[in-house]
Structure formats: structure tokens, C-alpha cells
Write a protein that binds this DNA or RNA. Sequence first.
DNA 1: GTTAGCACTCTAATATCGAGAGTGCTAATT
DNA 2: AATTAGCACTCTCGATATTAGAGTGCTAAC
Lengths: 344, 344
Amino acid sequence: MKLAQRKQKILAAVIEHYIATGEPIGSKSLQNTEGLDVSSATIRNELADLTAKGFLRQPHTSAGRIPTEYGYRYYVDSLMKPAVLDDRVKRYIENRLLSSGDAPEHIIKTASVIASELIGTAALSTTPTGDNSRVHRIKFVQTGRHTSMLVLITSSGMVKSRLFRCDFDITPEMLNVFDRALNERLAGQPLSSVNRPFAQTFAASFGELGLLMPDMLNAVMDACRESLGTNVYTSGSTKLLYQDDFDLMSARGVLEFLGDSDSRDKFLNNIPEGTNIYIGKENSHILLKRSAVVATRYEIENQPAGLISVIGSTRFDYSKAVAILECIAEYTGKFIAELLSVRQ
Amino acid sequence: MKLAQRKQKILAAVIEHYIATGEPIGSKSLQNTEGLDVSSATIRNELADLTAKGFLRQPHTSAGRIPTEYGYRYYVDSLMKPAVLDDRVKRYIENRLLSSGDAPEHIIKTASVIASELIGTAALSTTPTGDNSRVHRIKFVQTGRHTSMLVLITSSGMVKSRLFRCDFDITPEMLNVFDRALNERLAGQPLSSVNRPFAQTFAASFGELGLLMPDMLNAVMDACRESLGTNVYTSGSTKLLYQDDFDLMSARGVLEFLGDSDSRDKFLNNIPEGTNIYIGKENSHILLKRSAVVATRYEIENQPAGLISVIGSTRFDYSKAVAILECIAEYTGKFIAELLSVRQ
DNA sequence: GTTAGCACTCTAATATCGAGAGTGCTAATT
DNA sequence: AATTAGCACTCTCGATATTAGAGTGCTAAC
């Protein structure tokens, strides 16, 4: 729906006032809006119309207006001016991410910490998906008579290690055999192909020797599965309890959502590339129906990878959140790419 | 202070009623207490006395009595009968811990999950302290041109891995030199001795070659430091928000405490062996002044190791919590000991 | 030391009231 | 046709009053 200029201006003013203060606003206060030189009666008419169209609502008959979720949606799509980030903020983000260490995981964890700090609500970040990754190399390190560590190096340069234990004494020769056979068979294969059927046929092809392999193969499968899946980092979730426009039930809902890794990961996996905003009922998950999510996918060498995301009540400074998330996402993707490229 | 039999009985009845219902109780309802055959007036006198002595208090003049923290303390020390755990609960705990995987970390994580489930509040568990651990063996695995993984095996059988990156090309010969030199120098040394002074003298003793070592030595120090420090797992912290006798402020306080790893770890490290109960102001940390902590240290081969702990409001089923925690601690210690012994 | 009786206190729930904010509608104006 | 002034109306919020009920502390008798 296209709105007349003046209606847009009034709608934006109401929403921005509400985002800033959390209070409804009425026709009289709106007269102070820059560039709006009409009487309060005229504004009242416009407000009534915007309310009838579903953009605004009144908490009760004689309060001012506040946005509906539909109103927020229109604002986010058509009215909102992208916030311009202060240079100091940009440098702050850059520095924090740069000084967070040598592992991609650390950068990504830091990303969620600063998103939470700067936007003032709960934040999430995820490691890149390993969908396209392949096995590069698998190595073994013996760590005890019955235990050994497996090191998986993927084509994208990620490294995962995994302990496993056998009931028999492990010998260097045995590990050598495992090493040669596994790498011959798996090098260059997609991580997703390292599954149970593979393990069974692989072990079977070794006859008697294959009987010694299950523990080792389980470790390989685990490592591949974990490299495929994304890790999720959460920060500042207690901040939700301090948002006064968030009733306790909604805050609980979000906290529960964050704690339930299954539905959380499912939700996150369905978020497409770029910057996405989900307001209230637009969220597919029931525990988020009263919240808003802003999520940006960062890219590694132009490939959509993991997410940086914040979550809070629908009363949200969307413009600021988008600007900060996009800045964090940009640096995160860039720094991880640099890290991985030197690893090759 | 020693209390007369009847006073003890009344005190216990008040506390147990309050723990069970969260409601104050008055002289009349107390007449129904098993084995207490006196009039309500007599009970009133006793209550007045217990209140004067500081064991009980009234939320307001005309409400019944509820325990003070001092009352809880007396109850916990002298009145509380240890709860007897149902066999099915014991088996449940055993099974959950047994089926949680091959790594000590997984057992310990599961321990906090079931503590939280069974006791219905937030739970914490920590991995064993590595205070007495020594370096057993250090190994290297090359993972890229510029990166390598270091694997640290401690005397207690714990394994930690760590990635590091150098600015120069890593060669197998170089790793061999590192490997031999490090193990020669560090095998059998306490983890705590692997610190910066050590790294400096070590690198210096290699002259020119030592200039290539800093990245590698940092990784070694990191791995040792991490093995020394304990990991902390938290479960069910959102349960705090559902405890109706916990005002929002206190719940927030505890959540904040749990999120601040520095003060949390400091607090946990100071908890001695055995089972400990801290009620309200007895807690050294200000954010816990309105909460209660029950913590049991599990033992590995008769050595005090990590903690299993629950945290909630001072209205707490202490008896049940102690029984469950001690059961979990027993199995946790036992299973980890088994795991480590076969690793040698 | 124990008990019955009773006046007293305090809370929590409910009702009543007035001020204030903001509205929608009507009629007049541009 | 759009805008505006004016006004009666509605609803919330906070303050105040009222009442029922629970539980007490105290006194005097047992």
C-alpha cells in the first residue's frame, strides 16, 4: 500500500517517538514534528485513518497511538532511513574483532558479544555452515594405550579434533593402516557423505580388521557431523529481562527459545542471506511471536556463511540494529576469510 | 544454640511447610502437626519465642511465620533429615551419566543437566581442577602450510588440543625439533610451571631457532592454562524465572552472576570438598545475597575434583537437593575415574 | 506451664472518585 | 474538498475509603 506523503511523515514520527520513549503519542505532541504544519485536528484525522488501515493502534481509548506490527513492517520497508555509523563505532567493532584471536570461532563469538553490547539486547552468532566443505585430510595422534585423537582438516581450512577409545591396545601400525585407508577413501569427499552407510561398507571391506574400526569410525563421523553443523553463540540474554516493554512471559519465551538448541538451530538455518527482519507474528517459532529478530548473514569470499543476529521486543531501533549488524557482518566475514586463506 | 524438643519440632514444621507451599503458617494450622498435641495458644508462645530468637519472622503483623536465613541454617545443620533417594531415581542418574559419552566433559555436562532437571532450578558443574596435573606428552599435527595443531596429554589423562599459526612455512623437520625439545624439557613438569618465564628462557636457549617458536609456545601455554582452569557448565538457568518466590531482581542477579565467568569461577573455586550449603547473606558474592547455593565436590580416586551445584531462592528443598547432588557426585566421580584409568 | 478468650493490627481485595489526556464528531472556515 | 476550532465523551491512573479475614499478643484462669 502506498501512503500519502503526510501520512508517511506522521507514521514515521509516531514510530520513532515510540521506539525512543516507549510511550504512546497523541495528536498534540505530534504538531511539534519537523515540517508538519497542520492543526492537531488534521493530525487526528490522519491518525484515525492510519489506525483504520492497521498501521497504528491505541493501547486504550484515550491514549495516544503506538505502532502495530504491520506498522513496523511498513516503517522498516519504506520509511526507515538507514542509520549512519559513527567512525569510532566502526573502528571499535574492527578492533574488537581483530583482537579476538586466531580461531574463527573466537571472532564469531566476539561478534555476538559486541552486537549485544552495542544494540543492548540478546545477540546470537553462528559459525559458517560447512555445507560445501570436503574432507581434506585426517590424522591420528595416539594419546594413551586405549585412546587416540583424530584430527579432521576440511577443505575450507577448519580443523576439528575428536577423542576415541578402543577396548584393545592401539599400536602405531594400526593407526597407520587407519590413516592410509581413510585418507585414500575420503580425501576430497563431501563431509555429508561420511555417514553410517559409508562406515559400514568401509569397515566391511576390511574383513576381520574392520571389526576393530567402529570406535574410530564413530569419531570420524562425529567430527564430520560437527563440522557440518553450525555452532551458536549467545550473548547478553539477561538483557531481555531489563527491557521494560517486554513482559516477563515474552522474555521467558525468548530465553527458552535460546535454550532449546533444536528449534533455535532450525529457525536460524532457515534465515536466508543478506539482512532480514522478522517482526512479531512473522516469526515462525511460537516463542518468538512477541519479539523481533534482526539477522544478517555474513559472507566468506562472497559465499553466504553464518549469521549475526539480535533479538528483542518488537519495539526496536531497527535502523541502528541493521547498521551495526551489517558492519559487524562485514568485518567478521573479511577477517575469517583472511584467517582461512593463510591456513591453506 | 540448643533448642528444646518441642521448639525444634515446631521450627521444623514451619520450615517444611514453607518449603512445600511458599505460604506463611500460623499457630492454628500447626496444631495439625504430627505428634504436637498442644493448644494453639501454646504454639503461639513458642512461635513468639522462636521469632525473638531470630529463627522465624512474619512478613507482616498478621501473617503466619516463615523462616529467616538463620532459621534455615539451624534447620540445615540440626533438624533436616537426609532424604532417601528412590531406587529408580538412582538408576535414572546412573543411566543418564553412563550414556553421556566417552569424554569426561560430557559426563560433567550431563551432571548439571540432570541436577537441574531433578531439583528444578539452575545447576552448575565444573570439570576437575588440574592443580596436580603434569605434562605427560605433547604432540604436533600439521594442518596447513602455516598452521599446526598441538595436542597436550596430561598426567591425569585429559587431552587438550590447540591450533596455532606461524608466519613462515612449517616443515615436518621443524615440528620434530619442537616435539623433541619440548617433551624433553616438559614431560613430568606441573602444568602450572608452563608460564611466560619458562617460554622466554626456553626460546632463548635455542638462539636463532628460538625466534620461530613464540606462536607455538603461546599455544602450549594456552593449552596448559586451559587444562589447569576448570570449565563450567550451566543448565536450566531459565528455571529461575519461574520460581514464584523469587522476585525478578534476585533472579536477574543470579543470571548475571552465572554470566560473569570471572566472579563465578572465583566463587566456585573457593568451595571446599564435601557438600556445602550457602544461604542468603552467607554467600560471599553480592549478587547471591538473596539466593541459596548447594554444592557438592565429587572426588576422583579420593581426590576432591570438580563441583556439582544448584542455585535458587533460599526457599529450597535442601534435603532433596543434598541427596540428589551427592548421588550425582558419586557416580560422576566414579565414571570419570574409570574413563581416565583406561586411558593411561 | 498451659489454655481459652478477646481486642487489636495489618493485608488484600474492592469500590469510589477526580484529574488529565486524548479522542471523535460537528460545524464553521478557507 | 480540505482544514480547523470547539466540545462532549471515554478511559486510565492514582489516591482514598471500606471491609473481611487471618493471625497475633496479652490477660486471666486452670
